[in-house]
């Protein structure tokens, strides 16, 4: 019987790929057992060939387990009816390239047996949300990779799913798109939905995941909360506003007083993602302007968020077009 707190329960799951004659080719997943709890963002990590995509495809019923069991939303993985409550974004957006965004969402909406009015309303909201309003009538084959990912995401959310499975969600996205995706994942979590994602982009996973599992050669190696796993228990980090030289000296003195000899005090650096986002935002506000390093440094620490996803998407779309 499934624990009601769990959205997914995997027990002793194994997958063996065989050749035509039934001989074993690859053992992709080996006795995997894990749970995904309701309302969390769960990251599935691992190098290529570690079995994370195989696991996700078994969750979706695209592959059949060789042994073990999967309970997902209270159903067996082979039960098609579970799909009514699941949204899935594949690794690449394998959507029908001859459809436009409206047709795509309408098509997938019909697959959920949604009435016309509801389909239209949901599609409208999602197209707005993923920033494809201006490109909704263009065939997907004309879309950039980022746009394709976004319409892929929209189709995954057309049914307002309880569980969202994202396979490499930020793959192929520019930093703006990546940020939007991460924001969206967090928002989905805030809405009480469960998100399972697998990705190579460890920083992205770290940013959004509550818990992670690391697979290697089909085996579960690490499972736990991100904070718990990444906490450096032997160090303490203090972050504050810009200190004067006197202030720094006083802090050093205090630290020495507590016997902290191996102390590193420096101006923190923003990461490249932050710089990129800020540049794009400033460029939008002051077109035709080129920024110096000093100017950008002067604005460091400013909150890069608040950039509406739609705006970012629109700028990308323009550049793609």
């Amino acid at each position: 019987m499934q624990n009601p707190e769990n959205v997914i329960e995997i027990r002793n799951l194994s997958k063996v790929y065989r050749d035509f004659w039934g001989r074993e080719k690859v053992r992709a997943v080996k006795s995997l057992s894990l749970d995904v709890k309701k309302g969390e963002v769960f990251g599935l990590l691992g190098p290529n060939g570690s079995g994370k995509t195989t696991t996700m495809k078994m969750l979706l019923g695209l592959l059949f387990p060789t042994s073990g069991s999967i309970d997902i939303l209270g159903c067996k993985a082979s039960d098609v009816s579970k799909n009514e409550r699941i949204g899935y974004l594949p690794e690449e957006s394998y959507l029908y390239r001859f459809l436009n965004a409206d047709e795509t969402l309408d098509f997938y909406g019909r697959l959920f047996d949604m009435p016309a009015a509801e389909r239209k309303e949901r599609a409208e909201k999602l197209i707005e949300r993923v920033g494809l309003k201006d490109a909704r009538k263009r065939q997907l084959k004309e879309y950039s990779k980022g746009m394709t990912r976004r319409i892929g995401l929209a189709q995954a959310l057309i049914n307002d799913p309880e569980l969202v499975l994202l396979d490499e969600p930020t793959s192929g996205l520019d930093p703006l798109g990546t940020r939007d995706m991460k924001d969206l994942i967090l928002k989905l979590r805030d809405e009480g939905k469960t998100v399972v994602l697998c990705s190579h982009q460890l920083a992205d996973v770290q940013d959004v995941s509550d818990r992670i599992a690391v697979l290697f050669q089909g085996e579960l190696k690490v499972l736990g909360g991100v904070d718990q796993l990444l906490e450096l228990r032997e160090e303490t980090e203090i972050r504050t506003g810009n200190l004067s030289d006197e202030g720094l000296a006083e802090v050093n003195a205090v630290l020495e007083k507590h016997g902290m000899s191996n102390t590193k005090i420096q101006k923190p650096r923003a990461d490249l993602e932050e710089l990129f986002l800020r540049t794009v935002r400033e460029s939008g506000e002051r077109p035709g302007r080129r920024f110096t390093a000093e100017e950008m440094a002067a604005t460091q620490g400013a909150d890069p968020e608040g950039q509406p996803a739609a705006e970012g998407a629109a700028s990308e779309e323009k550049s793609d077009a």
């Binding site: 979706l60 019923g61 695209l62 098609v80 009816s81 799909n83 009514e84 699941i86 899935y88 594949p90 690449e92 394998y94 959507l95 029908y96 997938y108 697959l111 959920f112 047996d113 189709q155 049914n159």
Partner: peptide, 14 residues
Amino acid sequence: RLRSMHTVVTKPAR
């Protein structure tokens, strides 16, 4: 081959 089918069979389509 193009895996478009995956986006369909992962919906409630039988």
